[in-house]
Design a protein around this nucleic acid. Structure first.
Lengths: 215, 215
DNA sequence: CGAATACTTGATCCGCATCAAGTGCCGTGG
DNA sequence: CCACGGCACTTGATGCGGATCAAGTATTCG
């Protein structure tokens, strides 16, 4: 059992996406900017038109954990909006992005009245919950190298265009940059991947998946 | 930031709960029985009328992880039903239980047509997702003893009547029974708790929460 | 082109899982 | 009623995965 491959289309349906885009205010963000921070009250719904956004948890000691990643056609802020809690993590721009924004009240109204939207959100949350829990189990039962293998498969599968840094891979897999570096060079020596700076190619997907104990 | 205290009522609203109960078939389960297993296709919606059910992940090597716990007035099976995936974990009866069952098709139909039900499920999933992700971060940034402290606070707060075994506490906190035992006796020495077999009392909630770095 | 950031490699250390060997407890059946 | 089997609990000894620290090199970006 694993979070890879994901049997879920991470993008919103085209027609719904268009409808929401029309109602949103578009804004561009630079790499490193934040859409919102941990602890903020619900900031509304954000639609990723272009670029990449990471949902980061950061502790007081400076530990970072990358919960989720949102690419083109995806939305974020939905969990907090629905739960009506404070944001439990911060949304950080990983690649220069164009983001549509819908204020909380309007987004909630839309959710209440648009049946398809509700169903899409239900499915999205249900899938995100599975991913989170599988990663939770994974963090206990799997070695760092196995988690890094499944992280590479997931990230390259879902967001193949992004040049993932060693730190981002570490933050997603729950390890450290040093461990990622050592593990990736081990994979390269074994001919599973090929790396040149941030350009990482997976050469033997099947073997890598097998190594990570994925079916 | 933490999953304790939970600002969420884990039970379904009374009227909705009654409505669902009427449509369900009731059945009694003994301790240790399973409602469904990992890998099963959606088995429907289960309503806990009495008793306690744990959602368990188990790996091939025999590792167990307790994802979620469901008590009286709560429902389970909803995530799988909505995602329309195979169950990613097994539902195990922790205390002799009376469970109402609604078959998948009927439950989906109800979900589609009952607006309140949809909203309750949205909120439930949104909250469960936060809890899972916070635990994910917790598993990296916190020591075993801190996780055990927050686990005790959570379990005793949400399900005070259940006599939690050392193994269950370990499975929920992502540690081992041995570590739970050593940690609980440390807490007892420090006067934070009092234990006699499975009867564990939290004497100094505030201090325990402070120790676990909870606000 | 210079500063900041990312990457790399090696050495060290410690938290906690694991293993082992009990002890206690509870329910069941003789 | 007690003996017995099984499971939960307890305690101590051991080992290792991987975090952490440190120091140097390479890349990226403004």
């Amino acid at each position: 059992m694993s979070f890879y491959p994901v049997s879920f289309w991470p993008q919103l349906p085209k027609n719904l996406s268009c409808h929401l885009q029309e109602l949103s205010q578009k804004k561009t963000y630079k790499k490193g900017e934040y859409l919102y921070h941990m602890g903020d009250s619900p900031k509304g719904l954000f639609l990723v038109h272009k670029g990449l956004v990471g949902l980061y948890y950061s502790s007081e000691e400076g530990n970072e954990f990358l919960f989720r990643v949102f690419g083109k056609g995806s939305c974020l802020g939905h969990r907090t909006l629905i739960a009506q809690e404070a944001h439990h993590a911060s949304a950080k721009v990983l690649e220069p992005a164009e983001i549509g924004w819908i204020p909380p009240q309007m987004a909630l109204k839309l959710l209440e009245t648009n049946h398809e939207f509700m169903i899409v959100m239900l499915k999205k949350l249900a899938t995100e919950l599975r991913l989170a829990e599988i990663r939770l189990a994974s963090s206990k039962e799997k070695q760092a190298a196995e988690r890094i293998a499944e992280t590479m498969l997931y990230l390259k599968d879902q967001f193949p265009e992004h040049l993932w840094t060693r730190a981002e891979i570490a933050h997603f897999s729950g390890t450290t940059p040093e461990t990622v570096i050592r593990t990736l060079s081990k994979f390269e020596k074994e001919g599973l991947i090929q790396q040149k700076g941030r350009h990482i190619n997976i050469l033997k997907k099947e073997q890598l998946a097998h190594f990570a104990h994925l079916k």
